[in-house]
């Protein structure tokens, strides 16, 4: 094998590895996008299906005008950020910046924090600004794992 053949072979291998690596990266990104979209679509469907149960019987209920929630983008299924508009011992109603309400279910595993302190569900008041990390439930709620109260501006 001549030197030129060796060099060309090395270059082909290098280019092939780069192309293959890029393909893998693109497919991984595509998969992540599909999974995210599916989760959002599924949660949005469950939220819409259970809207009457969650928001007309729960605290802070507000029935939106017909067609108000149609045509919007799918909702985030694992988190919520916004203003507390309704609260009781086990449920929060959050209104996001997109004016969509979400029902947050507080469990025994939920950690609620304000600053460095851990507080109880009873310390959450209306008009508090919160960030919530959780798990979507089959009833269109988010089971909160962490609720962090943001400082008032």
């Amino acid at each position: 094998m001549t030197m030129e053949t060796k060099l060309v072979g090395t270059k082909i291998i290098k280019v092939s590895l780069i192309v293959f690596g890029l393909l893998i990266a693109v497919m991984a990104i595509f998969w992540a996008g599909m999974m995210t979209g599916f989760r959002k679509a599924r949660f949005s469907y469950q939220w819409d299906k259970n809207y009457n149960v969650l928001f007309t019987r729960g605290p802070g209920h507000k029935m939106p005008p017909m067609g108000d929630v149609r045509g919007r983008e799918f909702m985030d299924a694992n988190s919520a950020f916004g203003l507390v508009i309704g609260v009781n011992s086990s449920t929060l109603i959050i209104k996001g910046d997109d004016d969509i309400e979400k029902s947050i279910f507080i469990t025994n595993q939920t950690v609620i924090r304000r600053g460095p302190e851990t507080i109880g569900a009873g310390d959450i008041k209306s008009d508090d600004r919160v960030v919530i990390l959780g798990v979507p439930s089959s009833t269109g709620q988010i089971e909160a794992r962490l609720i962090r109260l943001m400082p008032k501006l």
């Binding site: 996008g33 995210t36 959002k40 985030d76 950690v111 924090r113 990390l133 959780g134």
Partner: peptide, 22 residues
């Protein structure tokens, strides 16, 4: 939250990752 509540975020890293992506 990654800076303020790292231990809880690390416990539920999959949900956190999805929430960031969403």
């Amino acid at each position: 939250l990654l800076f303020s509540d790292f231990s809880i975020v690390a416990s539920y890293w999959q949900d956190y990752a999805f929430s960031l992506l969403e």
